Simulated scan of single mutants.
Amino acid sequence: MKIALWLSLFIVFYAFFGYGILLFILIKIKRAVKGKPVPPIVDLVSMPSCTLIVAAYNEEDFIIEKIKNTLALNYPAGKVDFVFVTDGSTDSTPELVAAYPQIKLMHKEGRSGKIAAVHRAMDTVTTDVVVFTDANTFLNTDALIKICRHYADPEIGAVAGEKRVHADETADATAGEGFYWKYESKLKTWDAELHTVVGAAGELFSIRTNLYRPVPVNTILDDFMISLLVAGDGYRVIYEPEAYATENGSESVGEELKRKIRIAAGGIQSIVWLKSLLNPFKQPVLTFQYVSHRVLRWTVVPFLMILSVILNMIIVTSGYNSLLYELLLLGQVMFYMMSLLGWILETRQIKIKILFIPYYFCMMNYAVIRGIFRYMAGRQSAVWEKAKRK
């Protein structure tokens, strides 16, 4: 039981923190040998042609602001196209987009899901590069330039931008979410420097058009799948933090939980469908990064968190007198009590942000368990009902 306890705690620690520490060490070693990588020089003349695709569903509250943000993006004239796909929208989103002739509107009645809409848009793309972004996120002015400059390197098949969560003083539900994405951004930066990013976020990512492989229409995490297929084909996926998409945090932790459960279900689906990436003999570094950064979190970690508490309690109550195990159990109990207190305060709209980090951490792992069982039961639709945001 002691071995199982320490192994469980090690895997949990490694998946969320140990891998980051190991990455940091590996990056330091790589820089000592090869030097720190230098960002590519921006050459506007040789920039690839680019298409920006926005899939929007009933986004009338945001779409005008999104259009203005899109048209304000810097990129060489004549080298960029804008495509908005509004399949199934029943509000005024298509009409609002149609008022801007600079944007190509693709609309049809009936809702087949985001990825089906993206596939339809991709059939019309003729540019070198395609960039995907969400309708409720807003890009920095130089985002397209910062992304597309990387395609001068033929080894790079995709570029992921940074997701930023805007949180104001009242954004209690996003205290943990914002911290999580800042940490994830650092991990992705190191992942890319070591070899490749393992999965891009749909808020902002791009690929070479000729590398696009249509994923099944029942894919839950299409952005994750598309970018990992590029990595699986032997290309690198780069992370570009100077190209970022900003969005408001979820309206409540309940809305964020809904989103996390869907992501977890999609994570299990992706692991099943991309099982070839688990073969360390094909691309060992990619497999190492994929398992360390994604697979452990989406499979065994939540269950090992529960197991470690149970084993620790059994050891302490079995008469084994050890201050170490008693302190370890106390630490685990205190952590979960902080999480519980964070939940209680959130339901009463009392905002102590320091408690939302353990609460958000536990909520994420609870969502993984829910997502696993939802996927196994076949109850997770690929047609996403978006979370409400502030």
Rank of each mutant, 00 (worst) to 15 (best):
E203R: 15
L257C: 03
A265E: 06
I238G: 00
N248G: 08
R259V: 02
L257P: 05
Q269D: 14
V215R: 10
P214A: 05
V230E: 01
R262P: 04
L228S: 06
G234L: 11
I238C: 05
I268A: 04
R259N: 04
K258Q: 12
R236D: 07
E203V: 15
I261F: 02
D233W: 06
F224I: 05
G232P: 01
N210P: 05
G199Q: 00
S252H: 13
L204I: 07
G202F: 01
T219Y: 06
T209I: 10
S250G: 14
S270L: 05
L257H: 08
I261D: 00
I220R: 08
E242D: 15
R262H: 10
Y212I: 04
S252D: 01
A201C: 11
P214I: 09
A200I: 03
I271L: 12
I261Y: 01
G199R: 00
Y244Q: 13
I220C: 07
S250H: 15
E251Q: 05
N210Q: 12
R236S: 08
E251L: 15
G202L: 03
A200K: 01
P214Q: 07
V253G: 12
K258S: 13
E247N: 14
L221A: 06
N218A: 04
F205M: 10
V197I: 14
D223F: 00
F205S: 08
A265R: 08
M225A: 11
G266H: 06
A231T: 03
S252E: 03
I238E: 12
S206R: 10
I207K: 05
N248R: 15
V230Q: 02
Y212A: 04
E240W: 11
D223A: 04
A264H: 02
Y235E: 08
I261K: 00
